[in-house]
Design a protein around this nucleic acid. Structure first.
Lengths: 236, 236
DNA sequence: TTATTAACTGAACATTCAGTCATTAAAAGC
DNA sequence: GCTTTTAATGACTGAATGTTCAGTTAATAA
């Protein structure tokens, strides 16, 4: 047995593909598949069907490879799941942190930008399926849940907390960024994305026939949710 | 094959146990197990491990019976799942509807009572695991998701909407009960209960060693969340 | 051309588990 | 006691699927 954690990709994959700056000329057959593609396909299927109901053969099929090829890049199904979470979260939070550092306007505007940015970069993309996936599987994969909690939730909460503190320091917000307020601020958007990826097909509120109208209605709802929480933050 | 829906309990169970007022004297061996116990055990395990990761043998073991006995009461695992949802939701909403009809005070007080009641009757009990379960499995069980959406979510939303309208009609609330506001009002509590049943063991915010202190902190957080949304509803 | 290396394949294997059923147990009627 | 009826059991089965690996393909190096 290898001495690596079973939730990490096998080393050769990391060496050959992730660190592409290999100085030597490669030998042998060139790779046909990018492991990032496998992870992206796995994310889609995990989000759509759940972890257990997703067959590795379907992931492979979606990526245009065979089932065996998956095992060249990931030790196990759980390792693939871990990669899905890791790959999803790494690029997702940097933007928000940069935004917060550069902002100079009002607290309400900062909060609007943060929440809209979260929706654009995560809520409205395929990454929006990750929260549902983690809620569903956190108890079955404590290691991955801990990673997600530490690297995504904690960092996201810290971001919101700093934004609330910013508005509080300027005298615009009634409260400072305690954990409970932070959760209440994120709650409407988080719940929205959770519902979208679970009851989305059941909920008949949106006109399913016209995707552009649905997107329009969604934007309106997001805006309303954001204004709702800002109203709760601001002074009377 | 029976002509009943596969998601309904087998008829004999309903006849013999649910309708206990059978006039005839029963013959044969008396039942040792109450199907409600099976459903309760299934709820616990489904919530803890997820639908797929829960083995029927474990459900049976938790209820003190054998796997075969489960099939005397439920046609399949999916039927057991449906019973879990159905049994959970039936008694859960009546209280809220009665409360709303009898209330005469301010809109904010009504909202406090409603949300606290929801927390006491659902959020803080084993039923609080149902939302997580449904979020996780809605796509895999469209029938059950539709049932849950129609009988739980829609009715719960209607309740909140009427409470907002009540406060709005009295001139206390800024807005009427549009669907988006309703969701924003429920969001903090719903998200809290979702997190409790997924990341609950990972989140180190609460002191896990002292359950009474944890319950105390939880009550404080619920109260803060409720006041947060009421503040967003009320006039400036 | 031939050897070597790496990527890839898919049939076979091993395991897990929902669902079945022949059997046993416990009650009531005769 | 004997029969009938219902409850309960747990070993068994079959299908699904995660995992493995001997073999194949496609590239470079000699």
């Amino acid at each position: 047995m290898s001495e690596h954690s079973p939730l990490l990709p096998v080393p050769h994959a990391t060496d050959v593909h992730a660190a592409d700056a290999h100085p030597l000329v490669r030998r042998g057959r060139p790779a046909l598949v990018d492991p990032a593609t496998l992870v992206a396909c796995a994310l889609d299927l995990f989000v759509e069907k759940g972890y257990a109901a997703t067959r590795l053969e379907d992931v492979a099929l979606a990526a245009g490879v065979s089932k065996g090829t998956l095992y060249l890049y990931f030790d196990s199904k759980a390792a693939l799941f871990a990669a899905v979470v890791r790959q999803g979260l790494v690029p997702a939070l940097a933007g928000g942190e940069a935004l917060l550092d550069s902002h100079r306007g009002s607290g309400a505007d900062l909060m609007r930008e943060l929440l809209w940015g979260w929706w654009r970069l995560i809520g409205a993309t395929r990454l929006g399926g990750l929260p549902k996936l983690m809620v569903a599987e956190a108890r079955n994969f404590p290691d991955i849940a801990e990673l997600y909690h530490r690297e995504v939730m904690a960092r996201g909460c810290a971001l919101i907390r700093r934004a609330i503190d910013y508005g509080h320091a300027r005298g615009e917000f009634r409260v400072a960024g305690d954990p409970c307020t932070v959760q209440a601020v994120m709650a409407p958007l988080l719940l929205r994305v959770l519902m979208k990826h679970s009851f989305g097909c059941v909920d008949h509120a949106a006109p399913a026939d016209d995707p552009s109208a649905a997107a329009q209605a969604e934007s309106t709802d997001i805006a309303a949710s954001i204004e709702f929480v800002i109203r709760a933050l601001e002074h009377d």
